[in-house]
C-alpha cells in the first residue's frame, strides 16, 4: 500500500508520514496540489492521498477536482486531512470526490480508523 501525503507544512507531513509508515504504508510527499500532480505524473501511483485544503500554488480542493477529471486515477482513494471544518466545506469536498475527511487536530488512531473504514490495510508492517 502506498500513500501520498500532500501538505504545505513539513511538520504535518512528518507527523502523517510516521503514522502511515507505522501502519505499513510506503509514502511520498508533496508540498502543494501542483507538486502532488507532478508526483502522480511521475508514476508513484498511490492507493490513497492525504490532502490538506489550504496550500499555496494549488489547494487541496482544486487537486481533488483535477484528479477526478482524469480517468486513469479513478481507483485512487482521496482523504482530506485539514483544519477546514465548516460543515458546508466538508460537503463540498465530498461532492467533489473526496472519500473521507479528517479534521485537524487528529490522533494517530483517527487516521488508522479511517484507513480501516476505507478498506485500506497494508499486508505487512515492516520491522
Amino acid at each position: 500500500m502506498r500513500a501520498l501525503i500532500i501538505d504545505d507544512s513539513r511538520a504535518m507531513r512528518s507527523i502523517l508520514r510516521r503514522i502511515v509508515n507505522g501502519l505499513g504504508f510506503e509514502s511520498a510527499e508533496a508540498g502543494d496540489g501542483q507538486q502532488a500532480l507532478d508526483v502522480l505524473e511521475s508514476g508513484f501511483n498511490p492507493d490513497i492521498c492525504l490532502i490538506d485544503w489550504n496550500m499555496p500554488v494549488m489547494d487541496g480542493y482544486t487537486f481533488i477536482t483535477k484528479v477526478r477529471d482524469n480517468p486513469e486515477w479513478r481507483s485512487m482513494t482521496l482523504m482530506m486531512v485539514t483544519t477546514e471544518s465548516e460543515q458546508k466545506q466538508i460537503v463540498r469536498a465530498l461532492a467533489a470526490g473526496a472519500h473521507e475527511y479528517v479534521i485537524k487536530p487528529f490522533t494517530p488512531d483517527a487516521i488508522a480508523d479511517k484507513l480501516e473504514l476505507l478498506g485500506l490495510r497494508a499486508t505487512e508492517v515492516p520491522a
Partner: peptide, 13 residues
Amino acid sequence: DAVGELVNMIGGN
C-alpha cells in the same frame, strides 16, 4: 514551519 501549522490548526478551528 511548525509554528505556522500550529496557528493554522488553531485558526481553522
